[in-house]
Design a protein around this nucleic acid. Sequence first.
DNA 1: TGAAATGTTGGGGCG
DNA 2: ACGCCCCAACATTTC
Length: 480
Amino acid sequence: MKSPAIVWFRNDLRIADNPALIAAARSGAPLVALYILDDESPGPWRPGAAAHWWLHHSLAALSQRLAERGVQLTLRRGRAQYVFDQIIAETGAGAVFWNRLYEPWAIRRDDEIIAQLREDGVEFHCFHESLLFEPETLRTKAGESFRVFTPFWRACLAAPPPDRPQQAPKSLHAAPLPPDSDDLDSWRLLPQNPDWAGGMRKAWLVGETAARAELADFARHHVADYRSERDFMGRVGVSRLSPHLHFGELSPRDVWHAISEPATIGGDAYLRELGWREFCHHLLIAHWDLPDRPLDRNFERFPYRDDEAALDAWRNGRTGYPLVDAAMRELWITGWMHNRARMVSASFLIKHLLIDWRKGERWFWDTLVDADLANNSANWQWVAGCGADAAPYFRIFNPALQGEKFDPDGAYVRRYVPELAGLDARYIHRPWAAPAEVLRAAGVRLGVTYPHPIVDHAEARQRALAAFESMRSQVALGSA
DNA sequence: TGAAATGTTGGGGCG
DNA sequence: ACGCCCCAACATTTC
């Protein structure tokens, strides 16, 4: 009888359109399904607590999907290279199948494992599944990797379209004696004492089946209005598929093909956002230090401030700017934040508070259920003005104006900043400007029930522009 | 995938 | 009737 094949699940926690699983099943070998909780290899970029919460439920869902097909998901913890040695010894596996990851640490780790498998004479098969277009195939005319989104996306659209997603295998052939598995609960991925995940349980249904239902609902009811609705933070204009995509409960091909009419205005606009996801991964592959160093090296001289109190106020949603505070509390409660709220709150940290973007990047990393190294680092750099195709530094959001434009009735603020819920829409984005009687009637006491703004917008804006100028003159001096 | 400052235009009130 | 002023609305430039 054929020696078993290991299917190594990573961020591809699904059975439909999973090339590694499908190829392993077709090989005819009995299957060992493996997930490794490897806390060591990622170093500082190991998943945060919110991502761990998601991971727990996603693994439970995958385990169930596999069990329905007669395969046990084996859970192991430890350095992946070491776990592999053990599992291969225990199972006598002759082949390993997995789908590629693009994080620098994962590429290094996988290269080591490949070398080890070669030495041991074990076959291995790597597949491309988590992106629509393989980064290596997308080059500028000069043969460089793209640094500007629009030409990048044009090149994507000119490339052969992504394959149709493959069906989930109906049945699987399991290895007769699956290796021992850890108990998922013993990994303690869920928070205890205190259990802060109540908001997340309310906000999400985790796993492949739920993800597929969400996608179908979005494609049927919302994508047509995506372009006009996506910016409104209090409405259901966006897909909220990001964590499902990050953990691979859906493939980007599933999404691409579910948007039934990409030629519609909404479909185009939505697929373009998938394009940004591609672009971010493309950047991370081309620039392995993207999470830690500004792509535009001039920004290494940017005069950021150390201000723990301000950073804390930002993290806790107590800046005195209702939109920023709603955004930060949405993040804390649900593990997710609306795209526009991400731009506004990130811009506020960097430009109003003059705090290094890497501190915000770290906070998002720890608190987002969709925390993704490529997206998170590329987008923080984009907001900071030091990234690829970045927003110009002087594009400084006015949080009150952004609120008035994109949360006109204040629904978003009311949901996450309940102490302001009684304020009229006219003042909800700028309570400091409300007459005393209005505040009293709404039960708001500035400085008591809700903070005064920690910085004045106009002053902070001037300060940020001056800081940018000082960086530019430093750079000019340095190069002279 | 901004906002503020500054410039331009055109309609209506009015002497 | 005409030109002047005001200012809203829109456009352009600047940060």
